[in-house]
C-alpha cells in the first residue's frame, strides 16, 4: 500500500466527523428551528458542561455505574455462556429463560426495578447488567459450542480435568467470539446507562440531558449527545486495542485488500 493510501485511511474517520458536523451546521442554519442548534453552538456548550463540577460528578457517577454493571455482567456471563456451550443440560436449563429476557427492552424493566430497588445506583446498575449480560452470554455460548472436540480430547489425554479444560482450552479457544460479545455489551452498557437515567431521573449524564431538554436548553442537549457519543467512541477504541492484542493469534495472517481498493 502506498503512503498516500495509508494516510488517507488513517485520516478517514476525521473527515467523516468533520463532514457530519458540516451537514449538521448547514441543516440547522437552513431549518432555523429553536430546538435544533447549530453544530458550533452545541460544541461551544461542551466546555460549560465539563467545566461545571456538578455536571462532572454526574457524568462520573454514570460512568461508574456503567463500569460496575459491565464488569459484573462480563464476570458472570462468560462462565455461564461457556458452560452452556459445553453442557447440554446447562444450556437446556438456561436457554428458555434467556430467550424470554432477550427481546425485552431492558429499559422497559426499569419501572418495576425502581419499585423494588428505588431510583438509586443499584436499580440503574442492575439494568446495565441485564443489558450487557445477554450478548455476552450468547457469544460465549456460541464460541464454546464451536470449540473443536479433538482439541479437548488432546487436552484430556495430557491429563487436564474437565474444569481445567473449560478454563484453559474452551476459554482461550472461544475468546475471539467472547470478546465480540463484550464489544456489543459495551455499546449496550452505554445505551442502558442513558435510558436508565432517563427513566430514573435523579443523577447522571442522562439526567443532565433530559433536564436540559425540559428547560429548553437545546445547545446543552446536543452537547451532551456529543459527549456521550465521544465516550462511546473512546471506550470502543480502547476495547478494540485490548481485544486485538489478546487475540492476535486468531487474526487473518494477511491483510486482504478489498477488491476495489
Amino acid at each position: 500500500m502506498t503512503l498516500l493510501a495509508t494516510s488517507a485511511r488513517r485520516a478517514a474517520p476525521v473527515f467523516a466527523c468533520i463532514g457530519l458536523l458540516a451537514i449538521w451546521q448547514v441543516a440547522s442554519l437552513a431549518l432555523k428551528n429553536d430546538s435544533f442548534p447549530t453544530a458550533i453552538e452545541a460544541i461551544r456548550a461542551i466546555p460549560d458542561i465539563l467545566g461545571d463540577k456538578e455536571s462532572l460528578i454526574n457524568i462520573l457517577a454514570s460512568f461508574r455505574r456503567m463500569a460496575i454493571g459491565f464488569g459484573v455482567a462480563v464476570l458472570v456471563s462468560i462462565p455461564l455462556g461457556l458452560l452452556m456451550g459445553r453442557s447440554r443440560a446447562v444450556a437446556a436449563f438456561f436457554n428458555p429463560l434467556l430467550m424470554v429476557i432477550y427481546p425485552v427492552p431492558k429499559a422497559a424493566l426499569m419501572p418495576i426495578i425502581m419499585l423494588w430497588l428505588g431510583v438509586g445506583d443499584i436499580a440503574k446498575t442492575l439494568v446495565i447488567f441485564l443489558g450487557v449480560s445477554l450478548p455476552v452470554i450468547y457469544h460465549s455460548f456460541e464460541g464454546a459450542r464451536a470449540v473443536e472436540e479433538k482439541m479437548l480430547w488432546s487436552g484430556a489425554a495430557m491429563g487436564l480435568s474437565p474444569l481445567q479444560r473449560l478454563i484453559r482450552i474452551v476459554l482461550p479457544a472461544a475468546l475471539p467470539e467472547v470478546l465480540t460479545g463484550c464489544r456489543t455489551g459495551l455499546v449496550l452498557a452505554l445505551i442502558t446507562m442513558i435510558t436508565s437515567e432517563m427513566i430514573a431521573r435523579q443523577s447522571g449524564a442522562g439526567n443532565i440531558l433530559f433536564n436540559a431538554l425540559d428547560m429548553g436548553q437545546y445547545d446543552t442537549v446536543f452537547a451532551m449527545i456529543i459527549i456521550v457519543g465521544a465516550m462511546g467512541i473512546c471506550l470502543d477504541a480502547i476495547f478494540e486495542r485490548v481485544r486485538a492484542r489478546l487475540v492476535r493469534w486468531s487474526e487473518p495472517q494477511f491483510d486482504m485488500p478489498l477488491s476495489f481498493s
Binding site: K150, W153, M158, S250
Partner: peptide
C-alpha cells in the same frame, strides 16, 4: 475408563492450540 497420558492421540484435524506458539503447544503436555 477415560483418556490418559499413556495414550497420545494425533488427529487428522491436527487439533493444535491456536493461541499457543509451536513451542507453547509442544511444552503444554
Amino acid at each position: 475408563t477415560g483418556p490418559g497420558p499413556d495414550r497420545g492421540p494425533v488427529f487428522q484435524e491436527f487439533a493444535l492450540f491456536p493461541w499457543k506458539t509451536v513451542l507453547g503447544n509442544v511444552m503444554y503436555g
